[in-house]
Computed example of a mutant assay.
Amino acid sequence: MPPITLLASGFGLGFYVPALLIRNRLERSHVECETVVLEHYFHSEKKLKIPESRKAYRDDFATALVAQRLPMDVRDSFDPGAVEELLDRWEREERRDFIVLSGHWVHVLRRYERRLSGRYSLRVDLVYMDSEPSPSWKSLKKLVPDYADGYREIRLFDADRAAVLYRLPVGAEEPVPYERRSPRFVVHGGGWAMGTYLGKLDSLRRTGAGLDIVVSEPSEAEAGRAGDRCFLIDPAWEAWQETGPDGRHPFPPFGEVVPGRPTAFASPKEHHALFGLLREALAIVSKTGGGTLVDSLESATPLVMLEPFGSHERRNAELWERLGFGISYERWERSGFAIDMLHGMHRNLMKARESGQDYIQSRISG
């Protein structure tokens, strides 16, 4: 039987890390699969512009907010020869089972279907990581209004129904009991390290808790205080590179930044390294991307929510607050940074984990 093909993207780690989590879960169930990253099939000059955009968005969050509202059509970014080689291989191997995490991949899938001319049908899950479609899906809808015809749409989270519809388990370990956790907060800006999180450090330090801060470059670690730890994704790494020890896509290489010492980056096999910090923390302080919702739910770690990156993250924040899984930073600050509030959210998250349906298990059994 041909493997399940997981169609990921490096535009945001919220479309990349979940693909690897799905890969691991499938392989533990002895289901063969392959992860394919969108940007690998871009023209070289388009790939080179991605780090430039990332830096611009980190430096100016307002610019990033404007840019994500603009329609995106990535079809001109594809290298036609590379895409044809990919489709040749899929056709040769009779690939017919796909899980899609970025809307931009649908353009390629429709080309593949035209090639097949009805010789066999595809089984395609479109997995939405956010509680409303993120920009790649919204742009696709404008270009191809009927893009989901014949495909199954999977929503992990639904703001309208105020529900977690599916879980995406991370590793095999159960959440750490709240009473045994370290008095620390994990502070980050999502996969691209964007947003207002660095501006909250001084007020968070006044709580007396230790901070685990994910920075975007080593220089940001130099202004820390005793008790802080700073971590970094390897700046030289790009998601489309198959640099893992097994020749496949690795979890983001991650390491602690200690001034005066080279950073030792590592990519755990079971899950992204950040998750190990989240399991031990009292709270995640971050904007509300879909990947962060998965991390919060699977670690049962409350989410203190910062300014969202677009309407989809705003809807995510509304959902998490309504379900009692998170709280806005401003509201938590007005409470005097009450830890008891967070403990109650942890209990709510634990209950949700017990009742949630495992997406991969349902995919295998269905």
Rank of each mutant, 00 (worst) to 15 (best):
A300N: 08
S182Q: 13
G208C: 11
E27H: 07
V285P: 09
F15W: 06
D234F: 02
R225H: 03
G247M: 02
R331F: 11
V186C: 10
P71R: 07
R111A: 10
S9F: 03
S77H: 00
L48R: 05
R206S: 12
G366D: 13
F98E: 09
S335R: 07
I4A: 08
Y16T: 06
E174I: 10
L38F: 08
D146R: 04
L293K: 09
R180G: 01
G199P: 08
G344K: 00
P133V: 14
T263S: 02
R69S: 13
H312C: 14
A56Y: 15
G171H: 03
Y151H: 09
L349K: 03
P135I: 09
R206T: 11
R229A: 07
F309H: 04
V294F: 01
T63V: 07
A239H: 04
R331T: 12
H271M: 08
R180T: 10
R363I: 05
S29N: 07
D60E: 12
S362E: 15
L48K: 02
G208F: 07
W240I: 05
M1A: 13
R363F: 12
H40F: 03
S53T: 06
E270N: 02
K46C: 12
V164C: 05
Y16D: 04
L21C: 04
A236Q: 12
E280F: 12
